[in-house]
Design a protein around this nucleic acid. Sequence first.
RNA 1: GCGGAGUUAGUCCAGCCUCGCAGGACGUCAGCUUCCCAAGCUGAAGGUCGCGGGUUCAAAUCCCGCACUCCGCACCA
Length: 485
Amino acid sequence: MNYDNVMKLALERGFYFPSCEIYPDAQAGFWEYGPVGVSLKNKFLELWRRELVRRDRMLEIDGSQIMCKSVFEASGHLASFADPIIKCKNCKSTFRADKLIVELASIEVPESAPIEEFDKIIIEKKIRCTKCSGEFDKAHKFNMMFKVGIGPEEEPAYLRPETCQSIFVDFPRLFKTMRGKLPLGIAQIGKSFRNEISPRQSLLRLREFYQAEIEVFCNPKKLNELEKFSEVKDTVIRIQVNDSQKTLTCTEAVESGVIPNKFVAYYLGLLSEFYEKTGIDMKKSRFRKLSDKEKAFYAEIAFDFEVETTTGWLELVACNYRSGYDLGGHSNKSKEKFEVLDDNEKVLPHVFEISMGIDRSLYSILEHNLREDKENDRIVLSLKPYLAPIHVGILSLVKKDGLEEKTDEIYMKIKTKYDAFLDHSGAIGRRYRRLDEIGTPFAITVDHQTLQDETVTIRMRDQMSQNRIKISELDSVLSKEIAYP
RNA sequence: GCGGAGUUAGUCCAGCCUCGCAGGACGUCAGCUUCCCAAGCUGAAGGUCGCGGGUUCAAAUCCCGCACUCCGCACCA
């Protein structure tokens, strides 16, 4: 199924929809999750916690979304998270000043250079608009961070453009108070904000979005000393380097040099195991090693985890070896000590980051699991049972003869333990199909036999088959079926 | 931001050229019927026709501006 099918499902069934849509001045790039979407998101995040945070004994924090100016001076975002932009006076087309200068004058100007530098070269080299040959206006910087004014004096602060800055600035306290030992993973789920020039395609490019980030702090001398690497040594990962696609175990990837060390390989292995369990089609996924030009300004080694969708390859996770860039930057700026003891030696930890886009991941899960069952004339969302927004539908075959009351009774018993949905109205087939469409794996139906022998039918979403089970066994059957892997 | 195409009920769309009662299908809700897979019948709810202005006796329809969406370009640390 394609983007449009997912979009239709999202709007009709309450997965997600545009923010502030009743007002004409609603800005693009802001979306809301409806009830079904929130339930899916919560379950996805619980899986993330199980497979990464708890498995690797990471610490999870929840930091502020608004952070002071110093944070972004130290992180480099104020200088580097901005593009030098020039605009044609005639046709109003905008260009990246640095890219245009490289293209037309073959002069490399760093994008963080003073803004007058760009104007100077444009005048000297007589650079004109490539579309209409018009003259350019003065260059200006477009910073992708949202600025906010704090208090009556409107002291400048910023909405964080990535959640991880909280983790870096909190690192000294966390390491001391949480009895930290390298390697130490610190995780966070939260919102980040980027003033995208042209947000597009609903959840795929947002101005306000969720990230689930993990920063692993490590001793750079010990990137190949990692006992727990054995847990993933046979885990298969798909990886693309310089346009050639390879499918290797983590061990093979390290030995062949495709991945530089066991440390990075371990986390790529964990991530791969995690996504396998989300129901994303791993045959349509890859880790892609980024070239020097594609990497972010702070990254030394970078792999993107990408998934193929009907809109093209989509980056879901950025895995960056950020070296000592972040802690070094904050240490210099704040004068706080970031070195820690490892084997009685003081080290400034290096950082490996696993920065996951939650919204894009949820979209990919929906697209990869939505299918049209033509034979039975239905749309089915074949989610893993543990990710299903509604675990189980509780239905009465008909309302009369006391079946409605009996059905209510069963619903009352399980509604606090499971995400259950009670439905009495309309044809039974229609009710099954509605549940199929939002990915509900099971439907319990109360029929006339229930009143005689205390049994109900349980219907499986994917096969449309039914078994009869005792009401007394319902809880144990359901809890087994919807358990996380 | 540029170019093109769009915006009408929850969803998809007709109506626009040539101003003249706000429509259809699906979905939703209620009732009847059937009683295990979107059947049928009856009824109902749901719209500032993207927003603002103009022209006109009269604007979803013509004109202007803006916003948003999609496609392409550019952008995406």
